[in-house]
Simulated assay, not measured.
Amino acid sequence: MASPSEFDEVYAATAPRLIGQLYLVIGDLPEAQDCVQEAYARAWTRWDRLTRDGADPVGWVKTTAYRLAISRWRHYTAGLRAMARHGVPPDLPPPSADAIAVRDALAVLPKGMRAALVLYYLGGLRVAEVAEALEIPQGTVKARLARGRAALAGLLADPAGTEGWEMTHA
Rank of each mutant, 00 (worst) to 15 (best):
W44G: 00
P4M: 04
A15N: 10
Y76K: 14
Y40W: 12
G87P: 00
P159M: 12
L106V: 15
W60D: 01
A55W: 04
G59H: 05
R114H: 13
D48W: 05
M83W: 07
V58K: 02
A151K: 04
V61I: 07
V102W: 00
D48A: 11
L122I: 15
I70C: 12
Q37N: 10
G59Y: 04
L109Q: 06
D8G: 08
L119F: 01
A107Y: 10
E38C: 07
R126A: 04
A143Y: 05
Q33V: 15
E129A: 05
V58M: 04
V127L: 05
R126T: 04
H75Y: 13
L145W: 03
L92H: 13
R42N: 13
A82E: 13
V141R: 02
R126L: 03
R42H: 11
M1A: 12
G79P: 03
R114Q: 15
G164E: 06
G154K: 06
G27R: 08
A143H: 07
M113T: 15
L119C: 01
I26L: 12
G161W: 02
Y66S: 10
L68Q: 01
R52M: 12
P90E: 12
P89Q: 07
G161Y: 01
E129P: 02
P89K: 07
R49N: 13
Y23D: 14
A84E: 15
D98A: 13
W60L: 04
H169A: 06
A82I: 12
A143L: 09
F7Q: 02
L80C: 13
G87T: 06
T64D: 08
L152C: 04
T168S: 05
E166F: 06
L80F: 07
D158N: 12
R52K: 13
G87N: 07
E38S: 08
V58C: 09
E6P: 03
I100F: 11
W73L: 15
D28W: 01
L68K: 01
Y121P: 01
T162C: 10
R126H: 04
R42I: 10
Q21T: 14
Y11S: 08
I100Q: 14
D8K: 08
V108R: 11
L122M: 13
V130T: 03
A153Q: 12
L50A: 00
R147F: 06
L24K: 10
A143K: 07
D8N: 10
L18A: 00
G124R: 03
R81T: 15
Q21K: 10
A150E: 15
Q33A: 14
K111G: 15
D53I: 05
V58R: 05
A69F: 00
P90S: 11
G54S: 12
L106N: 11
T77H: 09
G87I: 07
T63F: 06
F7C: 02
L18W: 02
A12N: 11
G124N: 08
A41Q: 10
Q138N: 08
A12F: 08
Q21A: 13
T64F: 07
L24T: 14
L155K: 04
A153V: 14
P95L: 09
A69T: 03
Y121H: 09
L119N: 00
A160H: 11
